[in-house]
Structure formats: structure tokens, C-alpha cells
């Protein structure tokens, strides 16, 4: 079930959705990681991959599922090489999607920290580093 959206949320979404859809073909997952994907929206990947390309990418760089489209992750990798910032973010292990946030505003979720809430058993890289 998606989480209910407040009046403020709806107002922000009215701006965020058309803008991000027009620029990035955004799918409104509500937990944006465009900065770690060379500004290529990973939710356009038919397998919803948030950590890199699958093994089915075609030799010409096209998607396994839609041969007439470029692989989202080929674009992501090339895009991330061109970014002045966040280049190393392509190496980050992105956590599982919280599907309750689908359709909500990632700007608000970023501001409130809602998009950084993880399942308790998700061992993040930060926790890894602490253990090491």
C-alpha cells in the first residue's frame, strides 16, 4: 500500500512530477538516486535494477527486453563518467526499493529523511565500514 500523501505533498508533486518526467522520464519511486546513476532513472529498467546493468544487455548497448531502447544502465554508466560530482556513487550499493513510497515526492522524502529509512536488517556500507 502506498503511504497517504498530504496536501503539501500533492502540491509539491504537481511541480516535481511534470518536471522530472519531462527531463528524466522519472517513474516517481519517491526515493531518487539519479545522482548515483549518471542522471539516468533506474526505474525505467524493466527489471527495476538499482545497482547496475543485467547480463542481457545487447552488443549494441540496447535493452534485453526492449531492443529498440538503449539500456538504462549503459546510459547511467556513461552519464556518471561525465558528471563532475558523484562519480563514485555508481559504486554505492543501493538498498531495496521501499514500494510504499511509489508516487510520493522524493524532494519531500529527501527533506524529511523518509527516503533514508531502511529495513532493520539491511546492512549498509556504512555499517560494513564500522565493523571492518
Amino acid at each position: 500500500m502506498n503511504e497517504p500523501v498530504s496536501l503539501l505533498g500533492r502540491a509539491v508533486i504537481a511541480i516535481e512530477r511534470p518536471l522530472k518526467e519531462a527531463v528524466w522520464d522519472c517513474r516517481m519511486c519517491g526515493q531518487c538516486i539519479l545522482h548515483s546513476t549518471g542522471l539516468s532513472c533506474p526505474m525505467r529498467c524493466p527489471k527495476n535494477l538499482r545497482n547496475g546493468p543485467c547480463g542481457g544487455v545487447r552488443a549494441d548497448g540496447a535493452c534485453e527486453v526492449f531492443p529498440d531502447r538503449p539500456c538504462v544502465w549503459v546510459e547511467a554508466w556513461e552519464g556518471s563518467r561525465r558528471l563532475p560530482l558523484w562519480r563514485d556513487h555508481a559504486d554505492h550499493l543501493n538498498p531495496p526499493v521501499d514500494w510504499r513510497l511509489q508516487g510520493s515526492s522524493s524532494w519531500i522524502n529527501l527533506a524529511t529523511g523518509r527516503d533514508r529509512r531502511r529495513p532493520r536488517g539491511w546492512v549498509s556500507e556504512a555499517a560494513d565500514a564500522q565493523r571492518a
Binding site: N48, N51, C54, L93, N94, P95, P96, W99
Partner: peptide, 10 residues
């Protein structure tokens, strides 16, 4: 495709 293979490995 609820989670990806990288996440399942973890």
C-alpha cells in the same frame, strides 16, 4: 523484480 540481484546477495 521487487529487489535486484545485488541486494539479494547482500
Amino acid at each position: 523484480y521487487d529487489i535486484d540481484s545485488m541486494q539479494l546477495v547482500r
